[in-house]
């Protein structure tokens, strides 16, 4: 980080207060705008490091991080594992089929077990909303939410913001925040924790957020969160600077929420032709994994100048490094982080 960057960082939070006063990261909803900025700014140094051939920082040497994933995940788990390892921590992954947890040991017993093993940070993914908070209340170490049910997935929203900021800077725009921008999130909003976290994060950074989906996939009362709801994708795209597509879970495809993939693609698939409705040079994002040909066409996903889908993955590691660094500072005795 350059000197000017850090002075900006300092200006962003009120004097006399901690830059990041939380022990856990359970959701974007708990964060103030300046705290989001702080996390993003702190991640920049790790973006730099990750682009070098020697990607190791020994900051968390000797610490143990447990990735407790009660729900299947490949990329998020990998991203957290890499982040922890690059910071020098010992990373252990725990896969637990959710059904066995439901039947036998309670989630709280699992949490107490992890706690007894003296983890220095626990990363939780769980299929039930609020599970991370439940665990955070019972353990002594920082807890990071890697996705809880349909509630929040805060690191995803932060990495999306960081990827977007990088793209804007690359284009010569300031990219500091997203004031004046219109961002459309399209897809299964109802079941999406990514959408919820992103709505909160993007709004905190100044963007106007639209959501677009068939009515059955729009959660009731979402307008109260401050978004504009669209059912017509072309109308939603009009004037949109960033299009964020969500993965359509195939298990929702059985005629319960939408009739078929084909029909969904017809109405809500992001095609090259449809992208014309958006603002010129509109940026395309997707949290992955993509269903090519369902919610997004390959020729859009692979547009080098428009799609930042791979950059999102890259930023994921940096954001998770920043989160692990910041949340363990108190335990590491970093000056000023009691």
């Amino acid at each position: 980080m350059t000197g000017s960057d850090s002075s900006q960082t300092q200006n962003r939070f009120p004097a006399g207060r901690l830059a990041f006063p939380h022990r856990d990261l359970t959701g974007i909803g708990q964060l103030e705008r300046h705290e989001i900025f702080y996390l993003l700014d702190q991640a920049e140094q790790w973006v730099e490091l990750n682009r070098q051939s020697a990607k190791h920082a020994g900051l968390l040497g000797g610490m143990t991080i447990i990735n407790a994933f009660f729900e299947n995940s490949t990329r998020t788990l990998l991203s957290f594992e890499i982040a922890g390892k690059r910071l020098g921590a010992d990373v252990v992954n725990m896969h637990a089929a959710q059904s066995s947890v439901k039947k036998g040991e309670t989630l709280i017993d699992t949490a107490i077990t992890l706690n007894a093993m003296r983890a220095d940070a626990i990363v939780i993914r769980h299929g039930s909303s609020g599970a991370t908070q439940l665990i955070a209340d019972k353990v002594d170490c920082p807890v990071l939410n890697a996705g809880d049910g349909q509630h929040e997935h805060p690191t995803q929203a932060l990495l999306d913001a960081l990827a977007l900021r990088h793209k804007l800077k690359e284009r010569g725009e300031s990219g500091e925040d997203f004031t004046g921008m219109t961002i459309t999130i399209c897809g299964d909003i109802l079941h999406s924790r990514v959408a919820r976290s992103n709505i909160l994060c993007l709004q905190a950074l100044g963007a106007k957020v639209r959501v677009c989906a068939p009515p059955a996939l729009v959660p009731s009362g979402i307008e109260a969160v401050g978004v504009e709801v669209f059912h017509n994708f072309d109308a939603a795209l009009s004037g949109t600077d960033v299009v964020m597509m969500l993965r359509l879970q195939s298990e929702r495809m059985s005629g319960q929420f939408i009739p078929s993939e084909r029909e969904y693609h017809h109405l809500y698939g992001l095609t090259k032709a449809r992208l014309q409705s958006a603002a010129p040079d509109a940026i395309v994002m997707h949290p992955g994994p993509m269903n090519r040909g369902v919610e997004i066409d390959s020729e859009v996903a692979d547009l080098l100048d428009r799609s930042i889908i791979t950059q999102q993955v890259e930023m994921g590691v940096a954001i998770r490094m920043a989160c692990l660094d910041i949340l363990t500072r108190s335990a590491r005795g970093v000056e000023g982080w009691v």
């Binding site: 809880d148 049910g149 509630h151 959660p219 009362g221 979402i222």
Partner: peptide
């Protein structure tokens, strides 16, 4: 109950 709170919390809800 379906509404703002359930939506913010990401809880399965019914009208």
């Amino acid at each position: 109950t379906a509404g703002e709170i359930a939506t913010r919390l990401g809880l399965p809800s019914a009208p």
